[in-house]
């Protein structure tokens, strides 16, 4: 054993240490990226799921398979607010009028997620016990416009004035790596439920 051997050992230790550090760093980055990429995917999937449900329900405002149950569909919206809407519809297309309500719960309600901003988005049918979906909704905002395109201010005294609506929804992860939450936004600029224009 000589000086050279010692140098070899020293060099190997240093190189090995550096490689180990690199490995740890790679692992950390991989974990972070896995969370971030996975979070992005989940946010987008959640957004699509909610948007599909919203479009499916909102397009049926004032719809009933037995049209005589809602003879004047322009009166189908019974309550409208910036974060809540109640309207008549026929979910199962069975000719029986259903009452559907969408509303956003308070942020304080969801305490079992790391995201302090996420809330329950409630979809209530016929006054059933509200059960919210926790898909990371942080923002659910509605704007309403009358038949001449003028935005209606809240409170809306007569929901029959509503002719079109704008829906804004934002979704984030329920948990995120290092508090870097992914965010996705969807906006339906003018949704006009066709049955509001009937007759």
């Amino acid at each position: 054993m000589g000086f050279t051997t010692i140098l070899d050992i020293l060099g190997a230790t240093i190189v090995g240490g550096v490689l180990l550090l690199i490995l740890f760093r790679v692992q950390g980055s991989s974990v972070e990226n896995t969370y971030v990429y996975g979070g992005d995917l989940m946010v987008q999937q959640n957004l699509v799921a909610i948007v599909e449900l919203l479009e499916y329900d909102f397009r049926k405002i004032g719809y009933c398979k037995d049209w005589q149950q809602i003879p004047d569909p322009s009166k189908a919206i019974t309550f409208a607010d910036s974060t809540k809407i109640t309207f008549l519809t026929d979910i199962e297309s069975d000719g029986v009028v259903d009452v559907m309500t969408y509303y956003l719960g308070p942020a304080s309600e969801l305490t079992n997620t790391e995201n302090p901003r996420d809330r329950y988005l409630y979809r209530v049918i016929n006054g059933a016990t509200p059960r919210g979906t926790n898909l990371g909704v942080t923002h659910f905002n509605l704007r309403f416009f009358d038949v001449l395109g003028t935005e209606l201010s809240f409170p809306i005294g007569n929901p029959a004035e509503i002719y079109q609506m704008e829906i804004n929804i934002s979704i984030e992860n329920t948990a995120a790596y290092d508090n870097n939450y992914s965010n996705a936004v969807w906006k339906q600029i003018r949704l006009a439920a066709r049955n509001l224009k009937n007759r």
Binding site: L23, V26, S30, N33, T34, Y37, G38, D40, L41, Q44, Q45, V48, V51, E52
Partner: peptide, 26 residues
């Protein structure tokens, strides 16, 4: 290292592809 990068890279690609598929289906 190559194996590690391949595995992680495959996963990342899958997630990116799934995002695109998700958007495309919608």
């Amino acid at each position: 290292f190559s194996m590690i990068f391949l595995v992680f890279g495959h996963n990342f690609n899958n997630m990116a592809t799934s995002s695109v598929i998700n958007f495309d289906e919608f």
